[in-house]
Structure formats: C-alpha cells, structure tokens
Computed example of a mutant assay.
Amino acid sequence: MHPHTLATITTSVAVLTCILAVAGLHTYARGLAQRAELVARLSETSQDVSARRRRFHALDRRLHRTRLGRRLELRLAATGLNLTPGEFLAYMLGTACALWLLGQAALAPFFGPLAGLLGIWAMVQFLNWQRQKRIERFISQLPELARVLANATQAGLALRTAIALAAEELEAPAGEELGKVADQLALGATMDDAMDELTDRLPSRELTVLVTTLVLSNRAGGHVVSALRNLTETLEERKETRREVRTQLSQVTMTSYAVPVLGLGSLFLLNGVKAGALDRMTAAPIGQIAVITAFGLYAVGFALIRRLSRVDI
C-alpha cells in the first residue's frame, strides 16, 4: 500500500474516532443532565407525598374493592379535593357522630340520630357543591380552551400535542384535567377513551359538545380549526347566558337554604324559651311523629324549591 494512501486512511480513522468520542461525551453529558432532572423531580414528588401523609389506609383499601368506593373516588377526583375515599368516609362518620352528640346535648336525645343523618347529608351536599363549583369553573374556561386548541392546530400541531400545550398554559381546573388527558394519551390510551373519562369526571353539555367536536375531527380528519372557532363563539354566548341565569336565580337559591335553617332555628328558640320543652314533646310517640313529619316536609320543600329553580341551558 502506498504510504500516502496509508496516511490518509489513518488520518480519516483518527478524525472519525474524535468525532465519535465527542458525540459520545455529548450524549453522556445529556444523559447525566436528564438523570439529575429526574432525580430532582422524584425528590420533589416524595416531599409532596411526605408533606401530605395519607390516613385510614386500611379503610381506603377496603373501599377500593367496592363499587361505592370507586364511585366516591371518581366524585372526589371531580371535586379537586386532596382526599381519598377512606379519608372522606372517616371524616363524614366523624362529623355525623359529633352532630349526634351535639343534638342530644343541645336539644333532646331524640334529635341525636336526626342530627347524625343531617351531618351525613351535609357532607354529601358539600361534596356535590364542590363538584358543581369545579364544573362551573371548568365551563367558564372552555372558550379559552377551545381558542388555545384552535390556535395550536392552526399552527400545524397534532391534536395530542395541542392538548398537552393547553394543559401547560391553562390554569386549574382545566389545566389539571387536560394534564390527565395528556398523560393517558402518552401512555397509549385512545382519544375516545381519554375524552370519555374526562366527561365522566366533569359532566356538562358544553364539555360534551367540545369533546364530540374533537373526537369526530380526530377520527374523520375534518376541519378542526374552523369547528373550534365556531365553537368558541358559541361557548362565549352560553357563558354569558349562564351567568345571567345564575344571577337571576340567586335569591331563589338563598331561599331554599333559608327555609330549613329557619325550621332548625325555631327548635333552638323553643328550647331556649322553655327549657325541657323538646324533651317532653319527643317523649310521646305523637311528638316524635310530628318532629319527623316536620323534618320531612322541610326536606321536601328544599328539594322542590331547588328543582323549580333549576334551569337547563
């Protein structure tokens, strides 16, 4: 072999070796940086978990095996509360026991079980109120969500990427819920399954329309940008309409809560005017029947007022 050719081959091999060494060092350094970032993220997660230690593990495990526990877990996920089904059930039973003892001490022994049932009803209503409040906040963010998705898809991004981008830009609860959808899509879930689970957590007509538009556009390959633009205008109009209706019905809503509060206050007033009156009244069966009937009528009145003031938009 000619010496000049041998020198050229040796130089080429040396240059190629240097290039590969530099590329290897760059890949190694990038891997170290990614590992350090992952360790930092995991340490932050462990700190968050340790800062919020879970209670009632045994009760939580038992509830996870039942249909009630799974439904309660889905309801808690929709409320955004940082509680497990076991914790909520334990707190609800504790509230019922406390109100039972308070009702016995403040009114009469007969009112203890009624106060306990009232505590369970109040906790369930609180859960529904938190869930409805989160749904309302999510609905108010839907026009902005549709606008972000329309801009992202118009820029050429895929729908999955647009959802992940919207999860980073939007505030809670829309950002959190879209983050869950993006995580499910990253793990291999289909768009239909991820969106169906989102509508199960936060059921509303507006979200159903948006999800249907996204799913059909993703499945059929339609003009998702124009559909989202039109949907944004519609959601803005529905948002203003819902706000006006809620303002008009605020007085009726307060009346529905004031009626049972007045009835409960009359019991304390009666017992305060004449001590022991409730004991003597509930000692006879006819008095117990009258009290239970009164509580039932107040509950029916509350339900009827709420039902008549409900307007489907």
Rank of each mutant, 00 (worst) to 15 (best):
P203C: 02
L142S: 04
R238W: 02
A283P: 05
L83A: 03
K239R: 14
V252R: 13
G296T: 08
V181A: 05
D312W: 02
Q130E: 15
L63W: 01
T255M: 15
A166I: 00
R243H: 13
G179L: 00
E177I: 00
K133A: 15
A275I: 04
R62V: 14
R160H: 08
Q248L: 14
T255K: 12
Q34H: 12
I292G: 09
A277S: 13
T11Q: 11
A7P: 06
Q34I: 13
H64E: 14
Q154L: 12
L117Q: 05
Q125C: 14
I19A: 14
L76V: 02
R137I: 07
A108I: 05
T79P: 01
T190V: 06
I286T: 15
E87P: 00
E144I: 07
Q125F: 08
L6M: 15
H64S: 15
L68S: 14
L101G: 12
T11D: 15
G94F: 03
D279F: 05
E73W: 05
R54D: 12
H26L: 10
P173V: 02
A189T: 11
A227D: 03
E177G: 02
L101I: 11
S50Y: 12
Q248C: 12
N271L: 03
E168V: 09
W129H: 14
L38A: 15
K180V: 13
I120T: 13
R55H: 15
S256C: 07
G80P: 04
L59K: 10
G222C: 03
L145Q: 03
C18L: 11
P113K: 04
Q251C: 09
R131I: 04
R147E: 14
S46H: 13
I289H: 04
D60V: 03
A78P: 03
L93S: 08
M92Y: 06
L102W: 02
V300D: 05
A194V: 10
L68P: 05
S226F: 09
L38Q: 13
H223K: 11
S12T: 11
Q184Y: 02
I163G: 05
L198D: 03
A283M: 10
G31P: 03
A299T: 09
V181W: 00
T212H: 12
E236V: 07
P3N: 07
L249D: 05
R246H: 06
G156L: 01
L107Q: 05
A164H: 00
A167R: 00
G103N: 02
E176Y: 03
A166R: 00
L117A: 14
T66Y: 02
T11S: 11
Q104T: 15
D196L: 02
T213R: 04
A36K: 05
R307T: 08
V224H: 01
A106R: 03
I163R: 01
A294C: 14
G263M: 00
S266K: 07
D183T: 10
A172M: 01
G86L: 01
L264Q: 08
V13R: 05
G86N: 01
E240K: 09
I120W: 06
L20R: 07
R134D: 11
T17A: 10
W100P: 01
